[in-house]
Nucleic acid binder design. Structure first.
Lengths: 290, 290
DNA sequence: CTTCGGCATTAGAAAACCTAACTCTCAAAC
DNA sequence: GTTTGAGAGTTAGGTTTTCTAATGCCGAAG
């Protein structure tokens, strides 16, 4: 009637991870820190293991713990076995485990991702971020196993996703022209975003004089504005880091909110394990941070 | 903010046990049986592992599963590592893990334990039972790490225990004399148990004629009765297997219940782990079985 | 003889896990 | 071409395990 025979002769292996760490450090507290858990958790797991084996592995004293003879004999075996597993796992799956592929248009990579990446990297120092530049919309399909950062309404097949920020457009210029922006020529941005005339219509403002410059990407538009070429109807989200560093400035004029936004999406198969979910959550948090 | 970093680069190891079994069998169902769990449990753990690693390990088809290239590469590593751990654990701790030391008086070992041991051994085929004969009461203290089977009222220091059976005394003879037992001489049993006079007092029966034989252990008394030497005030519990095989027979006379009983006890440190608790429960069940 | 670092212990909360019941798919048998 | 059956996937919900937070305890160092 023995019900949960895991495998004859092997204790629950996760206890061994803890034993190994505790033995290596000679301290339950240190081991607990290594795992990001509490000292009590380590204490209990060790006790379980000792109980399972029917022998003490540690000698407890007020100043810390030290291994018993049994523990001393057991540690190398456990250490080596775990090391072998870790090493082999790393060799075979290391790439997929510690690599995050992110596909996006070049300007999104530059203006949304890169400025916020350091926050994430501090939390996950040895996670590699691999970007894949997507020149055109339809090229996203080729990168269907990667994370996507893209502009739209948040409906994509077979993908989960979160909204990073809604698109909010507002006139922006180089700081030195912010006061007298009305005298600047407007920069035209072609594409799916509402333009100056829509802005004028919705806000009731007068439409500014169009200048000679017309670009087809928000990245170029913002750069042009930064150079003092004119006033641009810029994206709050994309301009965020330029605004924060004072390279651009919002002028005193109403904004135009849209229903579109910047989304991060990933294949539904991702994020199922706790580890991945945490990584995703951390990245999301970093990117949503304004 | 990564909270539960177990150990960078190692998946939860218990998933690997399942992977190894599934890979070995080429079947989730078979693996589930090996663990005494359901197929769904295996399916989920494998999925978790695959998700953690970011790669598929099995190819599912309606007829079963087979390893992918990744799985094929991973299996030997996992197999060997687990094998090494299992082997080493067995070498170091095998004795304490698969050995059950049972201390008791010789007659208890013979009449209580041995007849019921096969039931237990069927459930735990590779558990070694090591008996330690205890000639005298006080010798139990020397075997304080072993299980004890002993007669008394169930109060022992630092030990947990369960009552196997209360002591119930009843006149018994060899089967051929059971009818005419009144004409047989009574066998005297010296010791802590109530004797014939107590039996006569409590039940109101006439006290039988005492014969010439007087013994100091229940084992001897029962053996004497079996040989036709006389009628004995026998212990139901100890005589149980003799009664079942027809070597002894209870006569038609009232029984005498006592408040003493046969107890199994163990050091409080034992039975803390699930595995041990199950083993103990199984042994207890076997011994309580009449 | 007090303090302080480190472990044990506990109850209760949180997470992980398992099972039961169901579905889906394919192959083999009819 | 249907039927059947084995085996895997999927869920929701209950159960077990594990973790945390709080507290107690011990002994070494001041």
């Amino acid at each position: 009637m023995p019900k949960k025979v895991t495998r004859q002769g092997l204790p629950p292996l996760d206890w061994l991870k803890v034993f190994e760490a505790a033995g290596r450090h000679g301290s339950f507290t240190a081991a607990a820190e290594e795992f990001g858990a509490t000292q009590a958790a380590v204490s209990q797991r060790i006790r379980n293991l000792e109980s399972w084996l029917g022998r003490q592995l540690f000698i407890r004293s007020a100043r810390g713990v030290s291994l018993t003879v049994d523990g001393e004999s057991y540690l190398p075996l456990v250490h080596d076995s775990l090391r072998a597993l870790e090493q082999g796992t790393e060799n075979l799956f290391g790439h997929s485990v510690r690599e995050l592929r992110i596909a996006a248009q070049p300007s999104h990579l530059e203006m949304l991702l890169l400025p916020r990446l350091t926050v994430f990297s501090e939390n996950y120092p040895d996670m590699r971020i691999v970007t894949e530049t997507v020149p055109k919309r339809q090229d996203f399909e080729a990168a269907d196993r990667a994370l996507h950062i893209r502009y739209g309404r948040g409906v994509w097949d077979r993908r989960e996703g979160v909204l990073l920020a809604n698109e909010v457009l507002q006139p922006m210029t180089a700081p030195e022209h912010a006061k007298a922006w009305r005298s600047l020529p407007a920069i035209e941005l072609r594409g799916e975003r509402p333009g100056w005339s829509e802005w004028a219509r919705v806000t009731g403002e007068g439409e500014p004089e169009m200048g000679p410059v017309s670009v087809d990407s928000m990245g170029h538009a913002l750069r042009a504005a930064r150079l003092g070429i004119g006033v641009v109807l810029g994206s709050r989200a994309l301009a965020s880091s330029l605004l924060q560093t004072g390279q651009l400035e919002c002028v005193a004029a109403p904004e135009l909110a849209t229903i579109d936004g910047y989304w991060m999406t990933w294949p539904a198969s991702l994020g199922k394990s706790k580890r991945q979910a945490e990584v995703l959550a951390s990245l999301t948090a970093a990117l949503q941070n304004l």
